[in-house]
Design a protein around this nucleic acid. Structure first.
Lengths: 332, 332
DNA sequence: CTGAAAGCGCTTACAG
DNA sequence: CTGAAAGCGCTTACAG
């Protein structure tokens, strides 16, 4: 794997290991002559310094960890892409874990990452990863940045999306289009992410004198299939509904499909707005109007924050907010 | 980060470091009494062995590297998910890199991974990563497994998909449906992946006495937008075409959209078949008929192969083939 | 059954 | 400007 070591280079270049180390790290004063000789030897031998040996002594590995519930979820795969790119640009490589939304898995991943000596961790925690559950780990590890929702701990910082605002804007837009019977395809219960969306939905309704009816909300997992099923149910029970605001695009896409099956035209008979703006939102027809969350910003800011925290370990940082804005397409 | 070390445990448990190491690794004979004492101390102190220290001495890190062109591409994100899961199940953690289909980036990623001391690398190489370009690296690193297409080197093994067969089956199905003027939305040129699909397409045509016309193929990047544009062009120039076979689902989804805009009904006026079976294939309407590639199999088999190669470093392994089968939905 | 020593491949004070 | 020594946190022969 790494058959050629620093010692080999030193021997061949007739210098000490110390000197090779200095030219490799570009530090200290070295005669041009010996630097050239060492450089040439490194080149000739194809020497590459071992990051693991270096990590052992310097106590940093130039790696970070990323844990998401599911990398195959288009929302997270875009975030992951942005994170990896930002990390790479800063000289860091990234470990990644899927947690399947299990907080036990998340804790395991966190510990694994720490065992590998990563310099920081970015995690999109599941609702189950409460402050109490992560505390024992966070007390010993620093820094951690949380994606999309916050966990209270001095070693943890967050990059959040303007969810409530985005939700409110979306529903206000619907109201502005003349809709006054607006249902909501909600997501997994007991989830702050859902809570904020419901808040925004409710605020928009209240602000326009419209009633907030819990029987116009439908829950369940945030999948395409569920969106389709929930829409069928909701529209069967409350045929007067003319618009649907969804927890995410997967659900909204399912709603579009349901409307097609039900013979309801979108957006004429039923307007639909999603949340996230995944690529597929633009692949369906009618194209999905949605609340676009800046996923690249999420990943890039998370990495930037890790760097800041590394440089100021004792400082505590306020959350960063990334925009979530209405993106009009065809479904509403 | 890792404030408590093996030495701390040893001191507190009144044993030597050697003994702690033995209980941690469950090796050798130890009195139940001392084992219990050490275990209790480990627990009490919250000790976790440093993987980087261990990696330095054992020369293996229990990590692997994964490099794909773009993790946000739904095909690769599913493969990545399966790979990570299989790795985890085998006790390995994974580093991941995006290469943006640049072979220079791929080479950089490969070297970075080796510097980190990964035990193996799984890569979905871009067409630019030729055998000659990877050879200097592969000569020194082992094992490497290549996803979806092969590179000839004794340290490299591959897990491939039955592309040609899948393509042929798809086109034969179209012919069976009565189509005899079938165009193809091809992908990036100079790509073996494209070559195999074209072969399958051509074989099906020839086998049924149909003409293979290069002016019925359209090239370019494999994106939704391109699929839409290419379809518009192709159908404008050759309105007699009644069916389209696409290089991948993104292109096929673009084709469905184009048909909608052109007023061509799918599948009645124009049947469409994609390739890959990404989740969005089932979210559009009409749902996309496609050649399903076993992406989970790809990831799982790649990891399995890495393990085999690790256990038999001198052995050379034949490629593994993963199925690519027609999945009928609505678009054809 | 358990301990003291050497060493994995580097970097970091310390000398010279 | 450059070298010899110590040490990062483990594991691996070698003794006892």
């Amino acid at each position: 794997m790494h058959p050629v070591t620093m010692r080999d280079v030193a021997k061949k270049a007739l210098v000490s290991v110390r000197t090779v180390s200095r030219v490799v790290n570009g530090q200290g004063e070295i005669t041009q002559a010996t630097r050239d000789r060492v450089t040439a030897t490194i080149e000739a031998l194809g020497y590459r310094p071992s990051k693991v040996a270096r990590a052992l002594v310097t106590q940093h590995s130039d790696t970070i960890g990323l844990v998401v519930s599911d990398i195959a979820n288009p929302f997270f795969s875009e975030v992951a892409r942005a994170t990896q790119q930002a990390a790479r640009a800063a000289g860091y490589d990234v470990f990644f874990f899927n947690s399947d939304s299990s907080w036990e898995e998340e804790l395991r991943a966190l510990h694994s990452l720490a065992d590998h000596g990563v310099d920081g961790i970015i995690i999109a925690p599941s609702p189950g990863l409460t402050a109490e559950r992560i505390r024992p780990f966070a007390d010993r590890f620093h820094p951690i940045v949380t994606l999309v929702y916050p966990i209270a701990h001095s070693h943890i910082s967050s990059v959040l999306a303007e969810i409530r605002k985005g939700a409110r804007t979306a529903v206000e837009y619907l109201i502005g289009q003349g809709h006054n019977r607006i249902g909501m395809l909600a997501g997994p219960a007991a989830n702050p992410l859902l809570h904020w969306r419901v808040q925004g939905y409710r605020e928009a309704l209240m602000g326009h004198g419209l009633e907030f009816r819990t029987d116009w909300l439908s829950g369940g997992p945030a999948t395409f299939e569920r969106g389709r099923a929930s829409t069928c149910d909701l529209l069967a029970q409350h045929p007067q509904i003319t618009a649907l605001f969804a927890y995410n695009d997967l659900l909204a896409l399912g709603a579009i499909r349901a409307c097609k099956e039900l013979g309801r035209r979108v957006p004429d008979d039923c307007a639909i707005i999603g949340f996230d703006d995944i690529p597929a939102a633009d692949w369906v027809s009618p194209a999905l109007t949605t609340v676009r969350v800046d996923k690249r910003g999420l990943g890039a800011q998370a990495m930037a924050r890790i760097l800041e925290m590394l440089h100021a370990p004792d400082q505590t940082f306020p959350p960063i907010f990334v925009p979530a804005e209405l993106l009009r397409r065809e479904s509403a």
